[in-house]
Amino acid sequence: MHAKPALSALHRVTARGARLTRGWSASPRAMDVLTALSCLGLTAIDLPGLAAADNSLTGRSAAVVLALGCSTLLVRRRMPWISYLAALLFIGWLHELTLIQFALYSVGRYRGRRAGVLATLGYLAFSLFLFCCVPGWPETDHESLTGFLGIVVPIGVLASAVGIAAYRHDLVAELTARRAEAAVLQAVQQERTSVARDVHDFVGRELTLLTVRSEVLSMRSRETSYAKDFEELADTARRAHLVLNEIIVQRGERASTPGVEGLAALAEESGRAGSPVRLAMDPEVHGLSPLRQAAVYRVVQECLTNAAKHARGETVEVSIAADGPRLRIAVSNALPDRTPGRAPVSAGSGTASMSERVISLGGTLTATRTEDSYEVVATLPRG
């Protein structure tokens, strides 16, 4: 058979490729191309024999057929069964066993143990059928059957076993990476908790003082026109303190972020603050999970806050639409001419916070600013 030295040759090529790529951060596509070229190089050794055999192939046509078969390895990650079927065709037509080794390895590597074992059993059964029933293969005496099994079985079992081992190695590596990521997230969460406690202690104290002083000033100026302003200031500080408690202290007890049903009140509040809102929302949005509704609310809330800072008096367009499996949130507003030296106070972290929240749910967020407008577009998976 043409592939008697193929196992040792495959090991040599694999080891050489490993040394070649050890210091080279190769992409998966580049590795697939290298694998296909390696397989083609090994099968090219059989070109003289294929042209001389009774299979109606010349040297040029044999090279084309082998190249087409090896090219199926370019899709071995997504569709390894294509290489497997092409390898079975090579066995029956050309008695060529090189491609089947790469195909069985690919099935085991990218489809797991069950698929690898199934592919190996199918390969062995097909080879045994050809050996026993197809003319042109060796006669079915005991000696030739033993030699046949001594070639076919090790090729299939070893290639599939190496692929399954690599699959398990990939699973262990992914598990290790996920554990490391979970440890980092836990550390970040602990740091956030520590920061939140500091914020609650210091900001909460200042808000309490602001509330008390505003109430005192309201009582002292009861007979003046400023009494109502001080009362509103005291109410605002009190609400801010309550929200601070809900976000930091009671986070684990109940949800502190409203859903999409709170957008109407949010738009009304923004209108009272001087930034009218035109809200357009698909009815299907009400069927989203609470986590996604909270994300929608926070994105719109941050955008309205930015509009109040940078575009006070301008109308804010808010559109929340269900686009197939995705949810699209678009918030835009015009930008007024800003007097030099009177830019609003802004830390610039609002957009980053929105983006982090959206990305954590598998979505994307883009913020586009032009000379006369500002637009934020976020997309989220609905499921």
Rank of each mutant, 00 (worst) to 15 (best):
M1V: 00
K4F: 00
K4M: 04
K4C: 03
A15C: 07
A15R: 11
G17N: 14
R19Q: 08
T21S: 14
T21D: 13
R22D: 13
G23C: 11
W24K: 13
S25N: 13
A26D: 09
T35H: 10
T43L: 15
I45C: 14
D46R: 00
A52G: 11
S56Q: 12
S56G: 07
T58E: 11
R60F: 10
R60K: 06
S61H: 06
S61V: 05
A62H: 08
A67C: 07
L68D: 05
G69S: 05
T72L: 13
V75Y: 14
R78L: 05
I91T: 08
W93Y: 15
E96L: 14
L97S: 02
L97W: 04
T98C: 13
Y105A: 00
V107A: 01
V107D: 06
R111Y: 12
L118R: 09
A119P: 08
L124Q: 08
L124H: 04
F129G: 07
P135H: 04
W137A: 02
P138R: 04
D141Q: 09
D141E: 10
L145D: 02
T146L: 15
L149P: 10
G150Q: 10
V157S: 03
A159T: 03
I164F: 12
I164S: 05
D170N: 07
V172I: 08
A173S: 04
E174Y: 00
A177W: 07
E181K: 14
A182M: 15
T193A: 14
T193H: 13
H200M: 14
T208D: 07
E215C: 07
R222V: 03
T224F: 07
S225T: 06
S225Q: 12
Y226C: 06
E232T: 02
A237I: 06
R239I: 06
V243E: 15
V243W: 14
G252M: 11
S256M: 05
S256F: 11
A273S: 11
L279E: 11
A280L: 15
M281N: 08
E284D: 10
G287W: 03
S289V: 01
R292T: 00
V300H: 13
H310F: 15
G313A: 04
E317F: 02
V318T: 07
S319N: 09
R328E: 04
V331E: 04
S332N: 01
R338N: 07
P340V: 04
R342A: 06
S346A: 09
G348E: 10
G348Q: 07
G350N: 03
S355A: 05
S355L: 03
S360H: 09
L361T: 00
T364R: 15
Y374G: 06
P381C: 02
G383R: 12
